[in-house]
């Protein structure tokens, strides 16, 4: 598989024993964008909008896209360490951090480890903490429902966003299934969270923006409000006519909200 086939401006970067596909696009102050569990393929329009104003660095996480997945790697925290090392490799000392869903979890973990490195942090529909009661899932069990039901949670208008498998190449189809496999590897248990993360986020004193599509069925408004309480300096914004994947359904509005926050 070749990453270059999917993303003309991607390159391979070796971090320890992981081969990462990294997109770099645009000029200006650096911005690290961390994609969600569905991979980076649907995010190009959004990345382009950010890249009109910033130098966007967007890796595919280990096990996503065509980035490799070593046998030892099985947690979000492992990925946070890889991406911190990626920033070292690229010589990026400080960088604004934007993460979507699973990428929001990775971003929150990175910020808790090296808070001085991230002047501003924007998270779109982030997962990664468990704040609700033990007898109720904070995040719906996407691994125990039909695909169509998951799509309803992900999108405000699922009909419009429906993926047409017949239009996909074999390579894209394999990437899609592999992304889902890595998502399961990382989030199966504890489900969609790291029990330790919520006790570490107090270190993130930078301004944090939490964004959520108004129809997000995966990250509820209540979940996001409880997530927000874990950061000392936080604001929340809602994106209209968007579900969980706001950066796909409303790339303009989502990019605008983030760029305004980062100014």
């Amino acid at each position: 598989m070749s990453g270059a086939a999917n993303n003309p401006d991607s390159r391979r970067v070796a971090i320890a024993d992981v081969e990462l596909d990294v997109i770099e696009r645009g000029q200006g102050a650096p911005l690290l964008y961390l994609h969600g569990g569905a991979g980076i393929a649907g995010d190009h329009a959004f990345i382009d909008l950010l890249a009109q104003h910033r130098r966007v660095i967007a890796p595919s996480h280990p096990g996503f896209g065509t980035s490799s997945l070593p046998d030892w790697l099985d947690t979000v925290e492992d990925i946070a360490h890889i991406h911190l090392a990626l920033l070292d490799r690229l010589g990026v000392a400080t960088v604004d951090l934007v993460g979507m869903s699973l990428g929001g979890w990775i971003a929150a973990d990175m910020a808790s480890k090296n808070p001085e490195r991230f002047p501003r942090v924007a998270l779109i529909g982030p997962i990664g903490v468990k704040t609700g009661p033990s007898d109720k899932l904070d995040i719906p069990d996407i691994f125990a429902m039909p695909e169509a039901a998951v799509e309803k949670l992900r999108f405000h208008d699922p009909e419009k966003q429906k993926a047409d498998i017949n239009q996909m190449t074999d390579e894209q189809l394999i990437v899609m299934t592999r992304n889902n496999e890595t998502l399961a590897l990382l989030t199966w248990e504890p489900f969609m969270h790291d029990p330790k993360l919520k006790h570490r986020l107090h270190r993130v004193t930078a301004p944090v923006l939490l964004l959520r599509g108004v129809s997000d069925g995966i990250v509820s408004a209540d979940y996001l409000a409880r997530y927000a309480r874990l950061f000392p300096n936080v604001s929340i914004k809602t994106i209209a006519e968007a579900g969980h994947a706001a950066q796909i359904e409303q790339p303009q509005a989502t990019a605008k909200a983030i760029l305004e926050f980062l100014q």
Binding site: M145, T177, R178, L185
Partner: peptide
Amino acid sequence: VPAHYRNPPGYLPPAVQAKMLR
């Protein structure tokens, strides 16, 4: 048994899963 119980992510290799989806 519905499909989402029959075929959890990772149970089959991605190339096999992709072929089934196709």
